[in-house]
Design a protein around this nucleic acid. Structure first.
Lengths: 102, 102
DNA sequence: AATTTGCGTAACCAATCGGTTATATTTATA
DNA sequence: TATAAATATAACCGATTGGTTACGCAAATT
């Protein structure tokens, strides 16, 4: 049941978890301290992030250390960049047009 | 009821609609031809895209012409790029470390 | 050995999602 | 003017989402 990074990033809480983990790897409880919702809710979101390969969870004693993996963001970035290119091309065409007609 | 672009982009059908519209503005039916799902389903998705400002829908006679607006993608791109920077910085640190210790 | 800590899991719930079919409305066409 | 075309809207539906509380269990602490 592999997860689509788009779907994983759709939720603001999950994006915030990523933000928190970008400072450093952290345990589940430490992450949860940043949020108003319950710890099991955070656990669930972490599992979703894990399934989309954005986070790896490593057992260390009774704690679980969560680490960010940014690789899946590439898919998103490439998709967006493709449209950035399209966008710039369109601007170029407009530019050409204005130069010819102007 | 303004929509989050992240949430709008979470659905693969909606991303595909964006792809279709990136060729040129199109009417609802023309868009729908690209998909196996019903036309009302496409209408719904278009409305979601409209609410997140990714698409504008203009009435022209009995047709509605849908045009792509890529501006909201900037929010996504900036968010992702911020982590690209983080990622590169981390690689730099690793590089420094390896040079010192190596 | 008993207790506390850190976490997962299960059961539940209301809201939202993404689709459907049926119907209504407006505009173009014969 | 009757009809066809393009589309929206409503009512409905099952699945998913994102949260909750209650409970269980292994590891650390006392």
């Amino acid at each position: 049941m592999r997860r689509d990074p788009w779907q994983a990033l759709a939720d603001p809480t999950r994006r915030q978890i990523i933000e928190v983990l970008s400072k450093s790897p952290q345990t589940v409880n430490t992450i949860a301290e940043n949020f108003a919702i319950s710890r099991p809710a955070i656990s669930k979101q972490l599992k979703i992030l894990e399934k989309s390969a954005l986070v790896t969870i490593e057992k260390q004693g009774r704690e679980r250390v969560c680490t960010l993996t940014l690789a899946p963001l590439q898919e998103v970035q490439i998709w967006v960049q493709q449209y950035e290119a399209f966008w710039l091309k369109k601007l170029d065409k407009l530019d050409d047009y204005l130069k010819k007609e102007g």
